[in-house]
């Protein structure tokens, strides 16, 4: 009975949202607005589920003695930040924003910056012209890198034009193929879910 109710709800809401997209009737607009508001409310609850899952996993790993210091730091942050937000708020010049700007932002920017080092290392150790396709990929990468640089005294107009051609033709063709595939896949999956053919979201039965 519960499964039938879930399937019916999914079918009705799927159909209603599909139909209202093509309607400018005030009732359709009101319905759309209400459903969008509920969507955001439901999303807030999924955050609670995520937080609960994170706490349970971290506590379990702490008990098992895995990466203790990291788990303690992440749990500490999870408790501290909402506490600061509840006491002093999240507006500018509060302890919450101070920690965000002086701890979280530099930490995240540092981790992101490390990518440059890993890319340099990977280019030295792994980027080899082992075959003709690999050689073409390597040459393309070098052309793109030069075209996105600016070296005093050197003009690379022909390389920039060639890099733009690479972007507008082979890269674009591949990207469009992927996008069309994603689009068709989304439509197919949506129809399967709305019509009740695809039921894995109910627990895989």
């Amino acid at each position: 009975m519960t499964r039938k109710f879930a399937l019916m709800t999914c079918f009705i809401f799927g159909l209603v949202m599909f139909v209202q997209y093509f309607s400018n009737h005030p009732t359709a607009k009101l319905l759309n607005q209400s459903i969008l508001e509920y969507w955001q409310i439901i999303f807030a609850f999924t955050l609670i589920v995520g937080i609960a899952g994170f706490i349970m996993n971290s506590v379990r790993e702490l008990r098992e003695g895995e990466s203790k210091i990291y788990k303690l730091a992440s749990l500490g942050g999870l408790i501290l930040m909402p506490l600061l937000a509840m006491i002093w708020g999240i507006k500018a010049d509060t302890p919450f924003t101070w920690i965000f700007e002086n701890v979280q932002v530099p930490l995240q920017a540092t981790v992101f910056s490390l990518l440059a080092f890993f890319v340099a290392s990977a280019s030295f150790r792994g980027f080899r012209a082992r075959s003709i396709p690999a050689g073409i990929l390597l040459a393309s990468a070098i052309i793109i890198l030069i075209s996105r640089s600016s070296i005093p005294g050197f003009q690379f107009d022909f390389l920039t034009d060639f890099a733009n051609w690479l972007r507008s033709n082979p890269a674009m063709a591949a990207r469009r193929g992927i996008l069309i595939g994603i689009g068709l896949g989304s439509v197919t999956t949506s129809l399967r879910v709305i019509l009740g053919i695809e039921r894995t979201w109910l627990g895989g039965k």
């Binding site: 890319v119 980027f127 890198l145």
Partner: peptide, 8 residues
């Protein structure tokens, strides 16, 4: 970028 090209 130039460093990466050199490494390649």
């Amino acid at each position: 970028h130039l460093y990466v090209i050199l490494m390649i």
